[in-house]
């Protein structure tokens, strides 16, 4: 699957993720894409190396006098942690499963109209992460953005004015684009979408529903 991914993370997103300055919902989307994409995983390694080089080159601030002893005391007081890294069980990448509390079957979907369902994931408020389930051939209502929207395909595919996006592909959309993503006819499309501002739907009904449904 990895080598079929056509749409990757930008340098700006990758650097902000490595630097640790992204809102949690964006970090989740980036971490999930990297779990699916070896190319971006390798690029992330390079950005982390920049962070390491900057740490190595920074000025020093002296630690307090008893600092080393205090650290050894922390180590002795801590319970040894022998937790192996979780291995993927099921369809969804591990970082996403952590936020859902399980795989796809554990998602608590809510209808948002026109057959589309969503589930909002628990992240900090600076941005929102949601899973979207779009029935095969159905469209998400035409919408614009005030901020940035990241959409990562987990299953199926969608097409919009920009391109076609399949499993592992990530679309990065800024405020200048109104788009109508339509799921491929072959299968339902499941995406992870992160936004740092509410979406602006162009039709009247979705806008009225927006404050209630947090879409």
């Amino acid at each position: 699957m990895t080598n079929m991914i056509q749409h990757h993370l930008t340098d700006a997103l990758m650097m902000a993720y490595s630097a640790g300055s992204l809102p949690e919902a964006f970090s989740l989307t980036v971490a999930t894409h990297i779990s699916m994409c070896d190319e971006c995983r390798a690029r992330l390694g390079a950005f982390d190396t920049v962070g390491g080089a900057l740490l190595e080159g920074t000025d020093e601030v002296a630690m307090t006098r008893d600092s080393f002893a205090a650290t050894m005391a922390r180590i002795r007081a801590a319970r040894p942690e022998v937790k192996p890294a979780p291995r993927r069980a099921g369809l969804l990448p591990v970082p996403l499963q952590d936020y859902i509390g399980g795989d796809l079957d554990a998602v608590r979907w809510r209808p948002v109209g026109m057959g589309v369902r969503q589930a909002i994931l628990p992240t900090s408020k600076a941005a929102t992460a949601r899973l979207l389930h779009i029935p095969a051939g159905a469209a998400v209502p035409d919408h614009g953005h005030r901020g940035t929207e990241l959409t990562l395909v987990l299953q199926g595919a969608f097409v919009d004015q920009v391109s076609r996006f399949g499993p592992g592909d990530i679309e990065i959309v800024n405020e200048d684009l109104n788009h109508t993503p339509v799921a491929d006819i072959g299968a339902d499309c499941i995406c992870l979408a992160a936004t740092d501002a509410p979406l602006r739907f162009r039709a009247l009904m979705p806008r009225l529903a927006q404050p209630f449904l947090r879409i």
């Binding site: 970090s27 989740l28 980036v30 971490a31 995983r41 890294a85 970082p95």
Partner: peptide
């Protein structure tokens, strides 16, 4: 991120096992 923003840091899943 944990201390200053009180946020979790989602990490990509590990390639290695054990």
């Amino acid at each position: 991120i944990d201390a200053l923003r009180k946020q979790k840091r989602p990490e990509p899943e590990d390639l290695t096992w054990g």
